[in-house]
Design a protein around this nucleic acid. Structure first.
Lengths: 146, 146
DNA sequence: GTAAGTGCAAACGGTTTGCAGCCTC
DNA sequence: GAGGCTGCAAACCGTTTGCACTTAC
């Protein structure tokens, strides 16, 4: 990893065991370009617009594989869609604007600490940090006057 | 407890404007009976088993309406299903066993405090507490020896 | 050369909806 | 009696899968 890994611009990334195909590279590039959380379909569409067409199922598969390998981030929107975004930092949580998808990263230390407390208090194992907050970012808020 | 409201055993509850139909009463009763988070389909099945049959879409509609009115609680499971449970206390969060659905209520004060901090720090409005933790409860954990 | 990856189309599973008949208020 | 409510079946929508073909290694 420390030898030939270029920065993650989306093209010459180490795919963690996956074959480097045109489609996967394109997906990674698209995700790198969009910097809000986007659905598989949105990403698929973005690919088509940039001329890098890939089949919808391929996009679904690629996004899943890439997120499994930690190359991209995943969350679930309140209405059940899976959203993806370029991975900024491994373990962290998000505050996502429900309208534009804009993201604020929450300091992970605090969340983890907090989950750890509950793990100890309750005996629950393998607690998944489903701590994703959806709100309306300042830019998307209706003006007070209206 | 105050005037004429009986305990929420599921039968003579004020439906907050909704007509009191056999089906809605049955749904409420089922939810009162099950005390873990259950899916609409599970609740529909539970109704059938108790002899209170109601159409699946009616159950979906009833659960939605009841949760909108705050009579029952809702969360989303990690795989996108909507889960319902009798409402214990208005604003609170949960730690749910991914296997048996068993729930630990998280002290809401702490979560709210925490969300409030982020609201102030980020300017995001209307932050929804999607703080639902899914883990494996002690009873469902594989024994260490195995 | 061969196993992994792709793309289409069809299946899937949870949920929603249109509509004719029913029942609560 | 009128409008809300119900139930069926069909539509929906995001996602997954089977399978023949292609491609990276």
């Amino acid at each position: 990893m420390s030898s030939n890994s270029a920065p993650r611009t989306g093209d010459d990334v180490d795919l963690a065991g996956l074959r480097s195909t045109r489609q996967r590279r394109a997906v990674l590039r698209a995700v790198a370009r969009i910097d809000v959380f986007a659905s598989s379909q949105t990403i698929h569409e973005s690919l088509r617009r940039s001329g890098d067409h890939a089949g919808l199922s391929t996009v679904y598969r690629a996004l899943q594989e890439l997120s499994e390998r930690g190359l991209i981030d995943t969350i679930r929107s309140p209405d059940g869609e899976t959203l993806y975004r370029r991975c900024v930092d491994s373990r962290h949580h998000h505050l996502v604007c429900r309208r534009c998808g804009q993201v604020v990263e929450l300091p992970s230390g605090q969340v983890d600490l907090w989950i750890e407390q509950w793990r100890q208090a309750t005996g629950y194992a393998d607690i998944q940090p489903v701590v994703e907050l959806f709100g309306t970012c300042p830019a998307c808020q209706p003006t007070e006057g209206a």
